[in-house]
Nucleic acid binder design. Structure first.
Lengths: 146, 146
DNA sequence: CTGCCTGCAAACCGTTTGCATAACC
DNA sequence: GGTTATGCAAACGGTTTGCAGGCAG
């Protein structure tokens, strides 16, 4: 995804939103931290480095906006707070997460073999699936080896 | 699962816990509401009917205990609170949930075709999988038909 | 009798909201 | 200029915790 300022602005305009310094800064931070699972608080700390006057509430409002625009994906890693990662629109399928119950590490899994299951469920329940979230819990390699 | 008082007591004793009226009452409520996805607050309200002096904090502590004993499963249905359902130990595979983004309805899916994917991931990452959680988001039959 | 468990209330913490001001278009 | 967005601080809501008393083993 190469979402430059112009494209972002257009995307916002389409929905009647304005492009502000804060919104651009949050998106840029997310792009700079592709592959990480950032807390809203962490995003706030990072954004403050280049945009010191930003308020935490704005970050909360902005990540929600980015999520509604599908630029960002909300994760729940069972640690009591919302985390976000860049939602790559050119990703043909969503990746998933392995969560180690020993050390808390989160591993990304590119594989997505859920398609056959999805179509089966759509037929069975007449339910139009738009997204799915899959997490595996267990013990990672490092912890297995003590 | 036919977990009577005796078995439950043994399971608790094994880990050094005591069998109290409150713990039994919470477990019984969960068994009486098999298949539902109860909020801690909802469990609290239900338990109070047969155990009026119970405190909300005890319910919080108890559901966590039951979860650690694998008698109960924690769900995150993205509505800002923890929900719990009876974790059937004789269930060979976990079921999953379809969440309608229009009306919020939650549909259970007994199907579980994740086994091949699990073994693949275990081999690939040398990660011992103990559990998984899968949610599908979309629009349910009723909402599709307006 | 000893230590775990409970009920209560206060503390916690991530998140949301109201409002006056500032910024975008 | 009109309207949306921001920053601040207070409110919110679910959850956790400290502690004195209660109960199981």
């Amino acid at each position: 995804m190469s979402l430059n300022g112009i494209e972002f602005k257009g995307l916002l305009k389409e929905k009647g939103f304005k492009l502000t310094t804060q919104r651009r800064a949050v998106l840029e931070i997310m792009q700079d931290h592709k592959g990480e699972h950032l807390t809203t608080e962490e995003i706030y700390e990072l954004v403050k480095e280049r945009c010191p006057e930003i308020g935490l509430a704005t970050v909360y409002r902005t990540v929600q906006l980015l999520e509604s625009l599908k630029l960002v994906r909300k994760l729940n890693l069972d640690d009591g707070c919302c985390r976000y990662e860049l939602g790559l629109e050119d990703e043909d399928h969503h990746h998933h997460h392995l969560i180690c119950e020993e050390c808390g590490k989160v591993i990304e899994v590119a594989e997505d073999l859920l398609d056959p299951l999805e179509t089966k469920i759509e037929d069975l329940f007449n339910f139009k699936i738009t997204d799915h979230k899959l997490k595996f819990y267990g013990v990672c390699e490092d912890c297995l080896n003590h």
